[in-house]
Simulated scan of single mutants.
Amino acid sequence: MANLNITVEDKVAVVEFNRPHAMNSIDPEMRQELYAFYDRLKKDDAIHVAVFTGAGDKAFCTGADLKKTMPDPNDSYANQLLARGETGSAFFGLETDKPLICAVNGYALAGGTELVTICDICIASTNAKFGLSEVRRGSIPWGGSLQRLPRSISKSDAMLLLLTGDMVDAHEALRMGLCSKVVAPEELMPTALAIARRIASNAPLAVRAVKQLVTRGMDVPLPHALQMDKYMYGILKDTEDRVEGRKAFAEKRDPVWKMR
């Protein structure tokens, strides 16, 4: 049985963490399956959007399986980080211009919440729980949340989560800005998939340009970010897809995108 269930339909990939017996925690085998999917995601033009969720109704993802994830005594972290450029995070390599959505059912703890901070949109079920508990184990989040979280929610809310290790429920996560919507459990995947399909129906080059500009723009001064917008607008201005989008609108029909 695969640790990840991956299906692709209507240009949307659904990635389901499939270890419900272990609260969908990430063991070494699942980690390698995730890395393989990230590589596929970047190369496969049939995938325009990815949706992450968890099998069962108890957990989305609870981070690393501490019972199975043990450090290799023959592989130093210095070698891992400096020689191979790896961080040890299960989400290493998930940098992509394609939109990512989290459909959070149940517990999203440690790496589960880290994935939420990486994804572009988070939809939560009413039974969702979020938390970064690493400080309670003498460690720190190392999937990027220390830097991403204060950039996406208030510093006070970010520090509350990071320093206490406390869990928050779906409605508190909504207030903080960790998620965009809270829905009943039975509405979670239909809602997430409907959003993913609406995104996938849009001009793919424009969608990827928007994500790239927003992501990169957050790390540069506003005047520089605005300049990047101008350059990207010029790049897209004469593409076949932009001409097709305007033509389809005038003719009251669905556009046919060619990604050029």
Rank of each mutant, 00 (worst) to 15 (best):
T62Y: 02
C122P: 04
R246T: 12
K230T: 14
Y35M: 10
A110F: 04
R260Y: 11
N79T: 12
Y231M: 09
L82C: 07
M30C: 05
T239V: 07
Q147W: 11
E29P: 00
A22Y: 00
H224V: 15
A128E: 10
A225V: 08
T239F: 05
G217S: 07
V8S: 01
D65H: 06
F52I: 06
K11M: 05
S180D: 08
M70H: 11
R242W: 11
S156R: 15
D97H: 09
N3K: 06
N24H: 01
R84Y: 12
L193T: 01
E251H: 09
D57P: 02
L94S: 04
A124E: 11
K43A: 14
S156D: 15
L174S: 09
L4E: 05
M70C: 05
T117P: 02
R136Q: 15
P204E: 03
P204K: 03
G85T: 08
R253T: 15
P255K: 07
T96Y: 00
G85E: 02
P99Y: 03
P255N: 08
Y233F: 12
P255L: 09
R253C: 10
G54A: 08
Y77W: 06
Y231V: 15
I195K: 00
L222V: 14
G131I: 13
E186D: 14
E134D: 15
G93H: 00
I123K: 05
D169V: 10
D166V: 13
E187A: 10
E33L: 05
F60P: 01
N24Y: 00
V51F: 07
V49K: 03
W257V: 11
N127F: 14
F60I: 07
F60E: 02
M23Q: 03
A50V: 13
I118S: 00
V15L: 08
E244F: 12
K11P: 00
S25C: 03
L149D: 12
R260E: 13
E114D: 09
V220I: 15
